[in-house]
Write a protein that binds this DNA or RNA. Structure first.
Length: 558
RNA sequence: GCGCCUGUAGCUCAGGGGAUAGAGCAUCGGACUUCUAAUCCGAGUGCCGCAGGUUCGAAUCCUGCCAGGCGCGCCA
């Protein structure tokens, strides 16, 4: 349990016992004591912790909130942990604690290091997080980049709170668009010798297809001797493979590495679609109508039933998706999270229905909708359509804005926000970008450490410092902020809200920068110097920790 | 017509039952003989889209409306 959680628990117990005493003395009518929550006030003039218990209970016991709060406070103020209790506002009880608990925070940070804040809400549950999953017919774009940054960060957060997380990219390498892609590539190949060779009307017009055709010519001897059908198939398979390698590489440059790239083709080769149809049929969830086979998804709350096998005998995409999710479950995952774009929100009902039809609880599958990025350049919208062959790629984004800045920019917004990303602004502001602000805090501490080292000064273990000299307001603020990380992580995980970590990092860095200008570490008298050195080392640990959670580097110098 | 998301400072966004609604950017004014000025300190700005309702208390929950984005195929 985190230091903060323990404090809350102890205070809550004290409040409950105070209420008990009041009832025992007949100063309070007997009532059921509701759950006692302690919040950290926004305004630190309101203490370390605050309770609204008097406000909640006032009506039930027929007292004015402030009077009840006063009675409770009267009992609690004698407790050893508590320096001061105040009744404030409409009836809040504000607790000012002795500083000793802050020291425990430093010990926790020191002891846990880059594991600081880990929790066990996940209890080792095997969780599969699928994200990006862009079609392998074009380069990664900015929307994919947002999904990559958010998904990767969320995966790290979920792992930190105790889930056994695997990340996965689903490759649609079996759909019609891959055939179109193959035809596009072959046409570009032919055009290398015969510029008048027609390009398919629905083909992918991007320049990258031409580049690929040139590589095909150079790298695939014997291709020219194949017959047309073999060439087409080769273009499709080889081309898709190249695209996937390209995507993988772009993502690696973005510091996103998937545990698994799962190919739809695998499902077809294993006859997984036939199997899933049999399975659903045997469970009575399929029926025939108008020559098609339908999945009775409305039985599980979907808007309408879905066609599984079309009247022409072909499968719909839903069929493969059900087979895919079945496959995930068969691999032993008991929690599935997919991050999808807003154009897929209609997909939630049918897939959740499918998972239930396969015998799993409704909440086994969770679909997060990540809103689009509206990409602007100099304030004007940039169109991003693969069909039009016009887009800003992940590659361009990373080179223009930088990997760390781009990641932070995406992660700092909630999934729900319809994000405006102005490339010009991001590039211009790159020196003012919040990510540098955070990294700079880390670099500053590293610099202090470097100089300490040169002077032969070593960071003392927290157990050996005199923590009582850490009494500057900003030192208290720093420690309290560090104390918040474990809960912040749990909230970020539970709410699937990686942006909370981005905010947290900014807040911690902000307090540090202020501290840095107001207080010196080196050059102070030894006792203070050692305490501050240890404190600042803890701050560095936590900064590195949160940057790491976001997949952002923590530079020693800038 | 139905469904999902959004509407908060000049801009981009946090906050999603509690106390005086916040941050960054932008604007203005200050601070470097001392560990990195990519920093710090100070200043201003809000019918929290609108209207009702629930509550001791609503930016937050409920209902209706307005505006924007995205969906609603035997397309993927």
């Amino acid at each position: 349990m985190s230091v903060l959680a323990r404090q809350r628990q102890e205070l809550a117990a004290l409040i409950r016992s105070a209420l008990g005493q009041l009832m025992a003395r007949d100063e309070l009518p007997p009532v059921n004591i509701p759950e006692v929550t302690l919040e950290i006030p926004k305004d630190k003039a309101h203490g370390d912790f605050a309770s609204n218990i008097a406000l909640v209970l006032a009506k039930q016991v027929g007292m004015k909130p402030r009077d009840l709060a006063g009675k409770i406070a009267g009992i609690l103020s004698t407790h050893q942990y508590i320096e001061k209790v105040e009744v404030a506002g409409p009836g809040f009880i504000n607790f000012f604690l002795t500083k000793q608990w802050l020291y425990q925070v430093l010990q926790a940070v020191e002891a846990q290091g880059q594991d600081y804040g880990i929790a066990d809400c996940g209890q080792g549950e095997r969780l599969l997080l699928e994200f990006v999953s862009a079609n392998p017919v074009g380069p990664m774009n900015v929307v994919n980049a947002r999904a990559a940054a958010v998904g990767d960060t969320l995966a790290r957060i979920l792992a930190a709170v105790g889930y056994q997380v695997a990340t996965e990219y689903y490759v649609n390498d079996a759909g019609v668009q891959t055939e179109v892609f193959g035809r596009s590539l072959l046409a570009r190949y032919r055009q290398l010798d015969d510029p008048s060779y027609p390009f398919p009307e629905d083909g992918y017009p991007g320049e990258y297809v031409v580049e690929l055709a040139k590589r095909l010519q150079a790298e695939a001897p014997g291709f020219g001797q194949m017959d047309e059908a073999a060439q087409l198939e080769f273009c499709r398979k080889w081309g898709i493979d190249q695209m996937i390698e390209w995507q993988k590489n772009d993502l690696l440059n973005f510091n996103v590495k998937f545990d698994c790239w799962f190919r739809e083709q695998e499902l077809h080769e294993a006859n997984a679609l036939e199997s899933i149809i049999q399975l659903l049929n045997s469970r009575g969830f399929l029926y025939e109508q108008e020559g098609a086979l339908w999945f009775h998804s409305t039985a599980f709350g979907d808007d309408k039933d879905r066609v599984i096998v079309k009247s022409d005998g072909n499968y719909t995409y839903v069929t493969a998706d059900i087979a895919y999710h079945h496959n995930k479950l068969q691999r032993g995952f008991t929690k599935l999270i997919d991050i999808l774009g807003p154009d897929h929100h209609g997909y939630i009902g049918r897939m959740k229905a499918a998972v239930q039809a396969l015998g799993c609880p409704e909440d086994t599958l969770e679909i997060l909708i990540l809103q689009y990025v509206a990409l602007l350049r100099e304030g004007k919208p940039v169109k991003m359509s693969k069909r039009a062959g016009e887009f800003v790629t992940l590659e361009e984004l990373v080179s223009e804005v930088g990997r760390d800045a781009a990641r932070y920019f995406f992660v700092m917004r909630s999934l729900d926000s319809h994000l405006d990303f102005d490339l010009t602004l991001a590039a211009q502001q790159s020196n003012e970008n919040p990510v540098y602000y955070i990294q700079y805090a880390h670099a500053r501490i590293s610099s202090i450490m470097g100089q300490a080292e040169q002077q032969g000064i070593h960071v003392k273990p927290v157990a050996e410092i005199d923590w009582q000299v850490l009494d500057h307001e900003l030192e208290i603020d720093l420690i309290k902020k560090m104390a918040e990380l474990p809960e912040e992580l749990v909230e970020a995980a539970k709410e699937r809200a990686p942006h909370r970590i981005a905010r947290y990092a900014l807040e911690l860095a902000s307090i540090f920068h202020s501290y840095y200008t107001h207080c010196h570490v080196l050059g102070e008298q030894e006792k203070i110097r050692d305490a501050r050195l240890a404190l600042v080392e803890c701050v560095r640990t936590v900064l590195r920790r949160v940057l790491g959670l976001m997949g952002i580097s923590a530079p020693e110098r800038m």
